[in-house]
């Protein structure tokens, strides 16, 4: 598509820009993962669902 070797095909973002967008995705996943873990632990404390 493009002759610029720095451009990530096909979105038109440069490599650095794409990495930044990706880093937000990774951050979000990590935070949500930790939150979900804590929430599950707390639920398990009050109503033990693992028996």
């Amino acid at each position: 598509m493009s002759n610029d070797p720095d451009k990530v095909w096909p979105t038109g973002l440069t490599l650095k820009e794409a990495e930044e967008v990706h880093s937000y995705l990774i951050d979000g996943t990590r935070v949500f993962g930790v939150i979900a873990l804590i929430a599950h632990l707390l639920v398990a404390v009050s109503t033990p669902w693992l028996g």
Binding site: I35, A39, L42, V43, V45, S46, P48
Partner: peptide, 20 residues
């Protein structure tokens, strides 16, 4: 979002609900 997601369970544990 994260704070709200764990808040109800934290409050229930804090108040000693169920097995807590």
């Amino acid at each position: 979002f994260g704070g709200f997601a764990i808040m109800p369970f934290a409050l229930l544990v804090l108040s000693g609900y169920g097995e807590a």
